[in-house]
Write a protein that binds this DNA or RNA. Structure first.
Lengths: 207, 207
DNA sequence: ATGAATGTGAGTATCCTGTTTATATTCTCG
DNA sequence: CGAGAATATAAACAGGATACTCACATTCAT
């Protein structure tokens, strides 16, 4: 139900063993997400993150070999969360409107804590060492869910993947824009976003 | 038809008088847009811009008092362009589908040269000295056009402004996403985006 | 109580940044 | 032509920020 997924041990210099250090690592990642969301990649410095986490810079480097490893950990955590939200909304067949409602609710929830983290992660933060493993794999699974949903509600075979891309990026655009002006929890916005999804997927038929 | 709007003389240290210097200023702004789009705000440095423009750093400071004035000039130019596109698409009453087609065509065109400039300008680049004049004024006029369009095709009085915001940010989201993966000129994408707009604005009736 | 795990933060070594300035080149116009 | 204005050049500067290390202090598990 939440984000409890076995951590595949992101590339770390040392594995935290005691409860204390686990909390430290968690605090660093959390603070990192906050800094990234609030200051963007340009303002994301290791010293700043350590300070925001209430931890010495030395502790940070005890677990993360370098800046990139930290971003990667943040990315992994956030993407896993978002993925679980979509996965849940698209699970077992439900009426279109309910799917839209749950999807919107989940996506907004996932963006409420660090409103612009998602965009920063996608647009500004550099990919992990060319491999782009986490990034690409996320994008793939992300789109798979949307594609499945589109296929379910739109019988038309053609353009299914394009539709999935359009749908997902439209939703992200709306949410990102709302996040920028602190309007994520405006009810009319949620309603209209649901409307948008329904209208597009029902493709001209009444909702 | 293009971007020929009288330049209100953005804050400059010195007005270019000869043809030579006008070309220089133009080259600087153009290069600035390129750098901003390709490297983001984090990679946007005056020296880099000067080099990209094939101009010495000194020339840059002859006309722009500081870094921010340059961004402001870039912003003004880009926003004016985008605004003229929307304005034209929303002009005189046309059938919904035609409006959607022209809007999509124009917006994609406006993003083709510097694909991610728009987003960088909105998300990363700092606003102009608190006043936020150009920025806010742009946003206002931008939304006005969308609101007018929504009001025209959607008879429902309520939520008109919210709908305009949802519509505009959805479009931007799709275009931005496509720009990121160099798919701006994919025809199916354009088609689906038109579909999205039509479906949302026709609100459940057949397109 | 002892060694391992964890935490500290001043310090280092770069690298870059925005901007100025003194000088050189090119234009305008009488 | 030639003189003063406009324009262009790039070396240099001062300052700040950056990612990261290291020698040491503290706290844990056993």
């Amino acid at each position: 139900m939440s984000t409890r997924i076995a951590k595949p041990a992101a590339r770390m210099r040392k594995q935290p063993r005691q409860a204390r250090s686990i909390a430290t690592v968690e605090a660093i990642i959390e603070a990192g997400a906050r800094v990234l969301s609030e200051l963007g990649w340009a303002g994301f410095s290791t010293n700043k993150v350590a300070e925001a986490a209430g931890v010495s810079i030395g502790s940070l480097y005890q677990y993360f070999p370098d800046k990139l490893a930290l971003v990667e950990a943040i990315r992994r955590r956030h993407f896993d969360h978002v993925l679980s939200v979509i996965s849940e909304a698209a699970a077992d067949e439900k009426p279109l409107r309910q799917f839209a409602r749950e999807l919107v609710r989940g996506m907004i929830g996932a963006h409420s804590i660090h409103p612009t983290l998602h965009q920063v992660l996608l647009d500004e933060a550099p990919g992990d060492r060319g491999s782009r493993a986490a990034h690409a794999s996320f994008q793939t699974r992300y789109l798979e869910h949307y594609t499945a949903a589109v296929a379910q509600y739109r019988k038309r075979r053609k353009d299914t993947e394009t539709m999935a891309r359009v749908l997902s990026s439209a939703i992200e655009g709306v949410i990102h824009n709302a996040a920028r002006r602190n309007m994520l929890d405006t009810p009319e916005l949620q309603k209209q976003l649901i409307e948008l999804i329904s209208a597009y997927l029902s493709g001209g038929r009444a909702t």
